[in-house]
Design a protein around this nucleic acid. Structure first.
Lengths: 131, 131
DNA sequence: CAAGATGCCTTGTTACACAAGGTATTGTGT
DNA sequence: ACACAATACCTTGTGTAACAAGGCATCTTG
């Protein structure tokens, strides 16, 4: 009505409410993957499982997210990859973090801490007002 | 080359490294705005200043981000708006958080805590390996 | 022999963040 | 009087990550 958009309110409301939690975790996939690779080399499918085990419900990574991410990181020189065939198993593409990758991880982790602090201070503020 | 974009690799590398910190903070704008509005009504320009003061360097919000966000929140019923003209000053559009907005804020805050925990457990894990 | 797990990948869609631009008023410095 | 910054709202176009959905191929299990 105000902006002349031909969309019912219930639709936009539902959409907004359902999808928003995805936005919060945006960009965290990169931090998660680099953090895991800092512990040792992994192949893609392995990363998917590890994130699922240790990352909790908000850090889920899908295949359609992970593989393009790994390719971006490799193009940027943050990781290197290597195909490994063990015995009769299917070939796996192992990823290893590079020096630049570790530096970038340190930067990302620092920014992550700053973000936590910033949001935390905004959230703490409501608590004060309400008490 | 890979994506058909006429961009040298050094450019794309630089770009990736520089812009990634924006991705981490993605989606946090909504949480920040709702948190501020939970303390009391605000107008847009005021929100920009408050986030700058209390949000820290990672929670910066630009005008081109804030105003569409407020409109989305209003369309979704999370906030209500009201034009107020005080004396001879320029009219201000005040936003007030709604009941649904508070519920949504609580949900977002809970998800935020889960995200912190998940990423935290992944980051702690490297510390262990390296010690 | 079918179905699921393993393991890699891509294309198309969606949604947000932002740079850049616009409009208009008020206050400040010279 | 005039320029400039601050106030205060807004939009369009571009970039990009996340994802759903799909594909390919092998191995294991019922």
């Amino acid at each position: 009505m105000v902006y002349g958009i031909s969309m019912s309110q219930s639709d936009s409301t539902t959409k907004a409410a359902n999808n928003l939690h995805r936005e919060l975790a945006r960009g965290s996939a990169e931090l998660a993957v680099l953090a895991l690779l800092a512990s040792g080399r992994c192949y893609g499918y392995e990363l998917l499982k590890r994130v699922r085990e240790r990352g909790g419900p908000m850090v889920e990574i899908r295949e359609g997210t992970l593989y393009p991410l790994l390719h971006r990181l490799e193009d940027a020189g943050m990781v290197a990859s290597e195909w490994v065939t063990e015995g009769r198993a299917r070939p796996r593409k192992y990823y290893v973090i590079s020096g630049a990758g570790r530096e970038h991880l340190a930067l990302l982790a620092a920014e992550w801490r700053e973000l936590i602090e910033g949001i935390g201070s905004l959230l703490d503020h409501i608590e004060e007002e309400r008490s």
